[in-house]
Amino acid sequence: MDLVERLAEKINQLDGLPTPIHIGFLTADNSLQLYPAPGSRTISQDWYGVQERELNFEIAIRTDDAELGNRCLWNISNAIDGLQTLISKDESFEFNTIEMTGLPFISEQDVEGFSIYSLDFKVNIDQQTED
């Protein structure tokens, strides 16, 4: 399923990102990452094998510029909160909705002066199960 790739692609189209978003966990340097979060679930399945799924994701930025981290995640939040379409390139899912489950927040600050800002959201899709 190419959902996470399509989300990253959509976010990377935004103007003013300090760096392109990557898929995976934060690195030791300045980084902007998108990754699955716990709690995803299957809501229902019909007789044809189509599952309605709710998938949780988190976007995080690790930066030594607190203002930049906060502004970046607010811009991403505002952009994806209004997302109406997201098209799978391999036809592995059909996009239904996206919902912000919180507002951007600072989750950590280390002794080196780096802060981590996070944003949580969930995506509702339909996905055909394997026969």
Rank of each mutant, 00 (worst) to 15 (best):
Ala79Phe: 09
Thr63Glu: 06
Gly102Ser: 02
Gln127Leu: 14
Gln45Asn: 03
Thr19Glu: 10
Ile98Ser: 03
Ser88His: 11
Ser44Asp: 12
Ile59Gln: 00
Tyr117Met: 04
Thr19Met: 12
Gly82Arg: 06
Asn78Leu: 10
Gln51Tyr: 03
Phe95Ser: 11
Ile59Asn: 00
Asp15Phe: 05
Phe95Leu: 08
Leu7His: 08
Ile21Arg: 01
Lys89Phe: 11
Asp64His: 10
Phe105Ser: 06
Gly82His: 03
Ser77Lys: 12
Gln128Val: 15
Glu130Ser: 15
Glu52Asn: 00
Pro20Tyr: 05
Thr27Asn: 10
Val50Tyr: 02
Asp15Pro: 08
Met1Val: 07
Gln127Ser: 14
Leu86Asn: 11
Ala8Arg: 10
Ser40Thr: 03
Asp120Ile: 13
Leu103Asn: 03
Asn30Tyr: 14
Gln109Val: 15
Asn70Glu: 12
Thr129Tyr: 13
Ala60Arg: 07
Gly113Pro: 14
Gln109Tyr: 13
Ile59Ala: 01
Tyr117Leu: 06
Ala79Asn: 09
Leu34His: 05
Asn75Val: 09
Val4Arg: 13
Phe95Trp: 11
Asp81Leu: 08
Gln33Ser: 12
Leu14Gly: 02
Ser118Thr: 15
Arg71Met: 15
Ala37Trp: 07
Leu83Cys: 13
Gln45Asp: 01
Met1Asp: 06
Ile11Glu: 00
Gln128His: 09
Glu54Ile: 00
Glu67Gln: 13
Glu67Trp: 10
Ile80Thr: 03
Leu26His: 07
Asp46Val: 05
Gln45Thr: 12
Val50Lys: 00
Ile23Ala: 02
Cys72His: 04
Ile98Cys: 03
Asp120Val: 12
Leu3Phe: 05
Pro104Ile: 09
Arg53Leu: 04
Ile80Lys: 01
Leu26Gly: 05
Glu108Lys: 12
Lys10Ala: 11
Gly39Arg: 01
Gln127Phe: 14
Gln109Ile: 14
Ala37Asn: 07
Leu103Met: 06
Gly113Trp: 13
Ala28Thr: 15
Ser44Cys: 09
Thr19Ile: 12
Arg6Leu: 05
Pro20Met: 05
Thr85Glu: 14
Leu14Ser: 03
